[in-house]
Nucleic acid binder design. Sequence first.
RNA 1: CGGGGAGUGGCGCAGCCUGGUUAGCGCGCCUGCCUUGGGAGCAGGAGGUCGUCGGUUCAAAUCCGAUCUCCCCGACCA
Length: 482
Amino acid sequence: MSEERLVTQITPKSEDFSRWYLDLIRRAELADYAPMKGMMVIRPYGYAIWENIQRLLDRRIKALGHVNAYFPLFIPESFLRKEMEHLKGFAPEVAWVTHGGDDELEERLAVRPTSEAIIGYMYSKWIQSWRDLPILINQWANVVRWEKVTRPFLRTTEFLWQEGHTAHETREEAQEETLRILEMYREFVESELAIPVVHGRKTDREKFAGAEATYAIEALMSDGKALQMGTSHNLGQHFARVFDIKFEDRNQKLQYVWQTSWGVSTRLIGALVMSHGDDNGLAFPPQVAPIQVIIVPISIGNWKETVLPVANQVKDALGRAGFRVHLDDRTEHTPGWKFAEWEMRGVPLRLEIGPRDVQKNQAIAVRRDSKEKISLDISGLDKKVEEMLTVVQKALFQKALDFQRENTREAGNYEEFKKIIEDRRGFIKAFWCGNEECEARIKEETMATIRVLPLEQPALKAERCVCCGKEAAALAYFARSY
RNA sequence: CGGGGAGUGGCGCAGCCUGGUUAGCGCGCCUGCCUUGGGAGCAGGAGGUCGUCGGUUCAAAUCCGAUCUCCCCGACCA
């Protein structure tokens, strides 16, 4: 019966993945539509996830020597125009400010779609000597891209992200930084978000406008489509030349700096929904869950005198131990209703405390991911909770990893490739000749694109391109993507 | 941006084709009683002017036009 009721609220995942995703985001109060096209409000329950992501990622960014700063939201048009390749990449989706009050501006201002231009300009003022390098700056900001098709969290007109911008003395240093960040993202997403990824280089066709090389982490969502989770760009000296970012090197020669830029966005929240959610709702990894432990008192008889005080003690104890814990002591809902509600909201661990439990000085702990129930002694509960959250975190990752492995297939020829994409989706590992025409043809005919070229490439012998049959240049991961 | 579908109390929908009293239904919400170990029950009650603007008409949720927004399918992207 509870299953039937849920169905009326959230479309089952198997029936319509897209509606399931949208229903869930609104029912769980992660976000709501704003009245302007493509814009959303991130509600407190959703924003709490972003705060957790920020905290956990910011720690890693700083551990690698970066510092935070903040650059302006507006960028003069002439700055964007200096880098035509960059401008062409973003021009169709830039929002322009043309007036200040009633007065028309002499020069239009772009609402930043990304900050390379304004940061490049500032770096040119700040950098003179090799002693000024490297510059390792990160910014937490909002950016605007006037996208034609939008989806909550996955692609919105305005979104929140973190963008790192570094400048280095040598090409090698910049490349090292680019890969160091890629690894940081991989480790962060896998260990904190419990989402397994594949990582590697993007093809020229898919790389960032103005970059020499783009690297990315990509994950498989549970509908078999890939989602780009983060990118790290080696910008070479493109922007340095345009913005005249020069320094006198150790040999007293004037040269341009070598730059990188990299970012992850609120899209990660959408990835959490699509990776771990099921027909009962969300399932958050404990590391980023807004609430890690929900306490539901079993309200029977004089529970307010007997059960509630114990529940409060447990809440306080877990709170002191550092857990994000919430006690649902509302009187207008039954325990059963609360069970279903908090499962839908993805809380990883539930503690049920009723009169019987109080008698025995115990609580019932229930995992969101497996529904497994066990009794725990209330004394020393924090240790047990810690253990269970660790187990849930690992189990979610393992489940997602199993899914990724089951849905990563090899295609030896184009017929196989097409069949897999049609029937199963998922990742396809296949060889590619390196020719952009094959890449384009595959996209045209199957809607699949090269997500990444893995960094660790097998030694090539007589392998053939899955599309044209000519000599292969690289192994690639293909998928249909968001 | 092209093709298709849709906007009616908080949510999900019916009504529209064939204009005509107080715009219905389920869930939710409020009050009371009674319940509470997997989304309880009964009784009473509040809440909408039909996305927005304009037109046709004696009369518009219903017909016509424009516009905004959402969803799906394609072309473009964190």
